[in-house]
């Protein structure tokens, strides 16, 4: 299946027809919901918070944020940004509670410093790697976005961005841009090596509970990673198990790809929607 990112610019791809199809498709709705719930689980908010939803689309995630029950630390308030007026139109029709901006995340995040407790982005930031006009570059757009996101989060704030990297280069281009902006960053994979692989970029601003810090990630020692790998008894590894992921990580580190250091998230199975 071809990637929408390779077909048209986002505001043209998500036109009225596509936005309606997207928003009413029950399979899409349930996948987006489960990824939103996973992101919420990673954000681990224990009290009603102000959340930015980047590439909020028709508000499928927003509805979940507004609906988090008190027992689970909600309900949260959210603001959304999206470049497609048709997607935002769908959100309006569905009467979502968050305020939304028609905005291009590649042009920055127009909120004052320390506005948000947290940010989420579901299936959107890979679009930053597209540069639709000759006067912008993916690198420039990524920088603008992550610098702005970093500033708009309060200290101790977190962001979780699920995204669909086109290839390993794109994946590290995106996580490197986040690290350069100052975030502590880690990548979490759900259902690794399956067709339904989901990649989450987990970001923290100063002092938060992060699975990987900037220094630990950029300090990755290729030789070391390999030596550790050899010592591990592979026969105990189940595919998808913690040991297996650790080994996969060591391999990726050896290849120079950014992966997060091991953490409590490593190897945890994805929960189904609450």
């Amino acid at each position: 299946m071809s990637r929408p990112e390779d077909i048209l610019p986002p505001d043209l791809f998500y036109n009225d027809i596509e936005s309606r199809k997207y928003t009413t498709n029950s399979r899409i709705k349930s996948i987006q919901a489960s990824m939103t719930n996973r992101a919420l689980e990673l954000l681990d908010l224990d009290t009603p918070s102000l959340i930015l939803d980047v590439g909020c689309g028709s508000g499928l995630s927003g509805e979940i944020l507004s609906g988090v029950p008190e027992e689970h630390g909600g309900p949260h308030a959210w603001f959304g940004m999206d470049i497609s007026s048709s997607m935002l139109g769908e959100a309006l029709e569905r009467d979502v509670e968050g305020d939304m901006l028609l905005a291009d995340m590649g042009q920055g995040v127009p909120f004052r410093a320390g506005t948000f407790d947290a940010a989420i982005s579901i299936s959107a930031i890979q679009w930053l790697c597209n540069a639709e006009t000759s006067d912008v570059t993916p690198e420039g757009r990524l920088k603008r976005f992550f610098d702005g996101l970093y500033a708009s989060l309060r200290r101790g704030g977190k962001a979780v961005c699920q995204f669909y990297p086109k290839n390993p280069q794109q994946r590290s281009m995106i996580s490197n841009a986040a690290i350069k902006a100052g975030f502590g960053a880690g990548i979490l994979e759900d259902d690794p090596d399956t067709k339904s692989l989901k990649v989450y970029l987990v970001l923290t601003v100063g002092g938060g509970d992060v699975s990987g810090t900037v220094s630990r990630m950029s300090d990755v020692d290729v030789q070391d990673a390999r030596r550790k790998d050899k010592k591990r008894g592979k026969e105990f590894e189940r595919k998808g198990s913690k040991a297996w992921i650790t080994r996969k990580k060591a391999q990726s580190e050896a290849k120079g790809k950014i992966v997060k250091p091991n953490s409590k998230y490593t190897g945890r199975r994805r929960k189904t929607a609450w």
Binding site: L102, Q107, T133
Partner: peptide
């Protein structure tokens, strides 16, 4: 419009 602010900037203004 309809509660949504348009923050899209022409590229020379970004």
């Amino acid at each position: 419009k309809e509660g949504i602010a348009n923050f899209l900037l022409p590229s020379h203004m970004v």
